[in-house]
């Protein structure tokens, strides 16, 4: 199924408040979804007869930010973080991407993580993907059954794939730089 058709179906089902633009002049077209309606959209595209996206290939987090002030002028994105859902259908053999954009910090307060509803109730594999995304990019998935760090130690500070992340000087007495 073509991404434009899927976009039309989702627009009809959820309206423009929930489903945003679908740029299709790129290699990997995607559909922008509002954070609060991602669980509904995910459940819909999984269960709908025409789509049957029964497989979540991957769930990525992405930080759009340029910490260097000189380079920041040329940086043509608003600072934000994104969650990307790579979906495919095993029965209908087609693929799609969904994207959710949220501000880098909740309420612009540095240190408080932005919130995205968890889709681990829709695709069970999202459990670990979301834990990794939380661990490294720092996105809080609300409604997740077990949102703990998965790669870094539990007492690690910060989220390492944030562009403005500073490496710790030492970790439990081990020099780190």
């Amino acid at each position: 199924m073509d991404i434009n058709e899927i976009h039309a179906i989702l627009l009809e089902e959820f309206g423009e408040a929930a489903v945003g633009a679908a740029p299709h002049d790129c290699i990997d077209p995607w559909i922008q979804v509002a954070a609060e309606s991602i669980v509904d959209v995910a459940t819909f595209v999984r269960d709908d007869e025409r789509m049957r996206f029964d497989h979540l290939n991957d769930l990525c987090g992405c930080d759009y930010f340029e910490p260097d002030e000189k380079k920041a002028k040329k940086f043509d994105h608003e600072p934000h973080v994104e969650v990307v859902y790579h979906l495919s259908s095993m029965s209908l053999i087609h693929r799609m991407k969904l994207k959710v954009s949220v501000p880098r910090w909740k309420d612009n307060a540095e240190g408080s993580l932005p919130e995205v509803p968890s889709v681990s109730s829709v695709w069970a594999i999202a459990d670990w993907h979301e834990r990794e995304c939380y661990d490294l990019v720092g996105i809080h998935f609300t409604g997740h059954p077990n949102l703990r760090r998965i790669l870094c130690p539990e007492d690690w500070e910060g989220h390492a794939l944030r562009k403005d992340y500073e490496m710790p000087l030492d970790y439990h007495g081990i020099r780190n730089r």
Partner: peptide, 11 residues
């Protein structure tokens, strides 16, 4: 590498 010990002789 934010998480790699810079040489095991530190440990």
């Amino acid at each position: 590498g934010y998480h790699v010990v810079k040489g095991v002789d530190l440990v």
